[in-house]
């Protein structure tokens, strides 16, 4: 009879990370589109409203956050679609390794490749909107804590809707209400920092939301993917 030597989970996660990384690098439009969207939305605000500091400064944190949130949402619809169509999703279900861990490798790479450039770009757009210098660090920190939540929660929605022919606004409608706490704490942290007030409280809330999401989302994503494939 055959002997079965299954690779270790670490090895499986390693190749999943490598594969996702290669796929994103070779499909650069998936990376550039959300980033471009993020920059364009923020750029249009001064043109559409007014380029004066008095008007832009109070809304700066909100504009950057809303643009980041929508850019993230934009990148999520296609997260699992291609995998379902080409059959790699069912193959992912058929490995002896836990799906929740493998899927975190995929989502993790997605965050690293889409959110990190976005976080690095945020201070530039912030400065353009007259966001005070002392708030820039908090803006980046808040995005660093908030964007993983946006992607993880969005991934649950993307996993649930992946088997539908046309998701349209369904994903947005499902996910957006769950984004609101992140948006509120994220913008108010930056707002507080802009007024030289401590932002620790809001950042702590963001951290708490992130911890909760990190624990629960992998289970949610893998359960949703199983429902989507097994039908």
């Amino acid at each position: 009879m055959h002997k079965t030597n299954t690779t270790s989970l670490a090895q499986a996660v390693g190749v999943c990370i490598r594969r996702e990384f290669l796929l994103l690098v070779r499909r650069p439009s998936d990376l550039l589109n959300p980033l471009l969207f993020f920059a364009l939305v923020s750029l249009l605000f001064p043109l559409g409203i007014s380029p004066t500091e008095a008007i832009l400064q109070p809304v700066a944190s909100g504009v950057v956050w809303v643009a980041a949130l929508l850019a993230t949402l934009l990148s999520l619809d296609s997260l699992f679609r291609q995998d379902l169509l080409d059959g790699s999703l069912e193959q992912l279900l058929l490995t002896p390794h836990p799906l929740s861990v493998l899927v975190m490798a995929k989502v993790g790479v997605h965050w690293l490749m889409t959110a990190i450039p976005l976080i690095l770009m945020a201070p530039v757009l912030g400065a353009m909107l007259y966001l005070p210098t002392q708030a820039q660090g908090v803006l980046m920190l808040a995005l660093l804590l908030g964007t993983p939540v946006l992607i993880l929660v969005g991934a649950i929605g993307a996993a649930l809707t992946v088997s539908l022919r046309k998701t349209g606004v369904l994903l947005t409608l499902m996910v957006l209400p769950l984004y609101i706490p992140v948006l509120i704490f994220g913008t108010s942290a930056v707002h507080a920092a802009a007024q030289d007030l401590p932002a620790d409280g809001q950042l702590a809330f963001l951290g708490a939301i992130l911890s909760l999401t990190l624990v629960l989302a992998p289970l949610g994503i893998s359960a949703a993917l199983k429902v989507s494939v097994r039908q």
């Binding site: 080409d86 059959g87 790699s88």
Partner: peptide
């Protein structure tokens, strides 16, 4: 049916 092949790889 779908062989799970990534076109970019």
């Amino acid at each position: 049916h779908a062989p799970g092949i990534k076109a970019e790889l």
